[in-house]
Design a protein around this nucleic acid. Structure first.
Lengths: 230, 230
DNA sequence: GACCTTGTGATTGGATCCAATTATGGGCCC
DNA sequence: GGGCCCATAATTGGATCCAATCACAAGGTC
């Protein structure tokens, strides 16, 4: 998240590496060698170092002095902690958005939500997984934007970038039930938006995010148990 | 805020530069030349660049490509935005802390608060200003810690580091009234803690932070008007 | 045979070098 | 005399070089 501008190259680089991690192309726990990344992007190690440091401050990777960087392995309780915070922030975003959402944006939110749902149905039928999460992120992102608080938007972006939400795997895991639930919770939220009920929207959003966090934490729990002990 | 470890030198450097900015030694709007900083700390420009980038992602400084970095000039609405977020986060911290605070910590909080108050009285009598804010930060920091949520603690630290709260100036400005108010709000909060009333504590904290944010925003408003137009 | 020691390889961290970009000043033209 | 243009200085950005640190392995000693 290039807050200001900074060097375009380094920020782009950080974004690209982050994307590779988020998508799972660079898996959790994998080492990130500066020389490799530099060669891979056809540049010197200098900007790579700065990009890695940027990712490090975001908490996505871990840098051990003189030892190198690895993609951080999130522990389930960290996910729960983060989502407890995120729930509060998204709740605030929802409350603020209620007073600012126009009908067009609500319609857009509806469209995004149904599109996401329909795609999930197609996915259950065996369609290509193709980086999902974008639809969900888009839905929430529209609300961030509508909240009209740049700091809030920024901090939510930061928390969402905190650990890889290797979404395709998630999607496959709890396809039917979770998707249905997600869709319905979004719909309920939209109704609260349309009704202009800020208190309800804030509460629904809080619960929605907490539930999503629980799902993600479960996923990481499952993952760590299969990888490390099984 | 060295989340993990990273290079000790760069993180220390970032912390030291940040401290200089926070204390007002490097004033708002001042340019930060890499060569100067390097010479000043007796090192090369390389770590300085990384430290500056770290500060940039925190939003404390602004980096214009090929033009250099300047200490960011906060606009009052940014302060309000940030404090609206901070209020929500501190509220959550207070709520969580209620269930976790032991009597010893509550006593410590009380001690810190009264010490801060007494010092403010001495200050009004003409004592040395000496970097204040530490007491207030200590008070809130103890609550962060008691909330036992590392992510929450980290994000609060981040938001508190977002713009210079050149506290000595603030202290001088609204010495009597604001200090009294601050002390009493802390006391009320402590009572809620002692009573184990999480809802009340959360609400008191939210209002307390919002008020503090208003004070800070006012200060920046006043400052910008005197500096830029007067 | 196990443990400690030492040497070597790999990788990061810091310093220096060079290129690219931009502000600034002087000179020229209108 | 004012405005435009070009040259130069200053500063950042990227590349390369060298030192420092750490892991790992081989050899020696008890």
């Amino acid at each position: 998240m290039p807050e200001t501008d900074g060097s375009a190259l380094v920020d782009d680089l950080a974004a690209r590496i982050r994307a590779k991690i988020m998508s799972g192309e660079i898996p959790i726990g994998a080492p990130l060698r500066q020389a490799d990344l530099a060669a891979q992007f056809g540049i010197s190690r200098t900007p790579v170092r700065e990009a890695l440091r940027q990712l490090q401050t975001g908490g996505l990777i871990e840098v051990v002095p003189n030892r190198g960087a690895v993609v951080r392995v999130p522990v389930p309780w960290e996910v729960r902690e983060a989502y407890e915070v995120r729930a509060e922030l998204e709740s605030l975003a929802a409350k603020r958005a209620v007073d600012r959402l126009d009908d067009a944006t609500i319609a857009e939110l509806r469209a995004v939500n149904t599109a996401m749902y329909e795609r999930s149905v197609a996915l259950a039928a065996g369609a290509a997984p193709e980086h999902d999460g974008t639809a969900n992120d888009q839905f929430h992102g529209l609300i961030y934007e509508a909240s009209a608080n740049t700091r809030l938007t920024r901090m939510l972006g930061e928390i969402n970038d905190a650990f890889p939400r290797n979404v395709s795997a998630l999607v496959l895991r709890d396809s039917a039930r979770h998707r249905e639930e997600n869709f319905r919770e979004h719909e309920a939220l939209l109704e609260a938006f349309a009704a202009g009920d800020g208190v309800l929207a804030a509460d629904l959003m809080r619960q929605h995010v907490l539930r999503a966090g629980e799902h993600l934490a479960h996923w990481y729990e499952r993952r760590s148990s299969t990888v490390f002990t099984g």
